[in-house]
């Protein structure tokens, strides 16, 4: 029974991973792509880890999977944050449909948004 639930959780995780990959292709610029990949892939991989824990129980493998999940939750947003700040400072322009860039206004001397028609 618990094993069945574990497999379901794993497959839901795989599904979210897939959706994250689709978002990565469909969104227009670096920042939106980071949104899709960070959120979906974190939850997807966390789902896989929890599924492994449910199947294996309190064995060495299950405990390691849980620890991996917790570490993933703490580190994945930090990595995304670093990538995002890096691309902002590198000067990657935002998609032309972006309506506001407060960060660029305050720190980089002007909004970093693509011109219409490029």
């Amino acid at each position: 029974m618990i094993s069945t639930i574990g497999w379901i959780v794993i497959w839901v995780g795989v599904l979210f991973d897939l959706l994250g990959a689709i978002g990565l292709i469909r969104f227009p610029d670096v920042y939106n792509r980071l949104q899709a990949s960070t959120k979906c892939v974190t939850l997807g991989t966390l789902g896989i880890m929890i599924g492994i824990f449910l199947i294996k129980g309190f064995s060495p493998m299950g405990i390691k999977a849980l620890i991996c999940g917790a570490v993933l939750l703490l580190t994945s947003p930090v990595a995304a944050h670093a990538l995002m700040k890096g691309s902002l400072h590198f000067g990657t322009k935002m998609w032309k449909g972006t309506i506001l860039d407060q960060y660029g206004k305050d720190k980089l001397g002007g909004e970093q948004i693509e011109e219409e028609g490029k």
Binding site: F16, G23, R26, G97, I99
Partner: peptide, 19 residues
């Protein structure tokens, strides 16, 4: 996740990003 997945799969891609 459901929110982002909806935006990724919707044919018109309903996003209005900004900082």
């Amino acid at each position: 996740n459901i929110d982002v997945a909806y935006r990724a799969l919707h044919p018109e891609r309903p996003i209005k990003p900004g900082i």
